[in-house]
Write a protein that binds this DNA or RNA. Structure first.
Length: 218
DNA sequence: GCGACAG
DNA sequence: ATCTTGTCGC
């Protein structure tokens, strides 16, 4: 693998990212998650799930799982080259498409402005939001401990994302624009879909995989 | 040069 | 990401 070449791909992808709201209504919100048979191994067997929830009830209205082989290692800032293929597969084969998709990882809060959530959105031309449990890039001040408060994630004076408190006295999550959405709307959507620390679409996608691997899969 | 570094 | 049950605390 030639990382310099992959960097150029990310730089080109970043140019196509749209950071304004480009949709009419949001009724269905989806979350995509991956799990690996051997996280350290390369290649390794892996599964991806897409769970779609109704934004009004936060109840699951659709879920889908696909299996595949992942043969690219985990390298910070190059996560998309490892996880994007399976994410594309689960999304493209889904019978229900959400209006917005939450992706585990960063969107534009990335050294080259193209984290996995943005890469996913641009490649599939859909509305996406980066929802990460930890920081990859940028600086911030700890937001207030109350649910709903947030502080900007910045780099060289520019806001690239937000550190959002989705639950009282609980570690915040890192939200950034994926594609075709504004940061303010992304934050609003994340807060609207969060009952716990991690927003429901993402949390349920993760739970669904755990359940799936204990049953249907052999 | 050294440390940091989504999942 | 994963190894892993009960347990402590709000």
């Amino acid at each position: 693998m030639d990382l310099e070449e992959l960097k150029r791909i990310q730089i080109e992808c970043a140019k196509k990212v749209l950071q304004t709201d480009d949709f009419t209504e949001v009724r269905l919100v989806g979350g995509i998650d991956l799990t690996f048979e051997d996280p350290k191994g390369n290649p390794t067997r892996a599964w991806a799930s897409l769970v779609v929830v109704d934004i009004k009830t936060l109840k699951k209205v659709y879920s889908h799982v696909v299996e595949g082989t992942v043969d690219f290692p985990y390298i910070p800032t190059f996560l998309a080259f490892r996880e994007l293929p399976l994410m594309e597969k689960v999304y493209l084969s889904a019978e229900v498409k959400p209006d917005v998709v939450f992706i585990d990882g960063q969107g534009v809060a990335h050294p080259r402005g193209c984290g996995i959530a943005s890469h996913f959105g641009v490649k599939l031309n859909c509305v996406s939001v980066g929802v990460a449990k930890s920081r990859l890039f940028g600086f911030y001040k700890e937001p207030d401990v109350r649910r709903g408060s947030w502080s900007p994630l910045t780099y060289r004076g520019r806001t690239i994302g937000a550190v959002v408190r989705t639950k009282d006295n609980t570690a915040p999550i890192f939200v950034s624009v994926g594609h075709r959405i504004s940061l303010n709307t992304a934050i609003e959507l994340v807060l609207k879909t969060s009952m716990y620390r991690v927003p429901e679409p993402t949390r349920l996608a993760h739970n669904h995989l755990q359940w799936y691997l204990r049953n249907s899969c052999k």
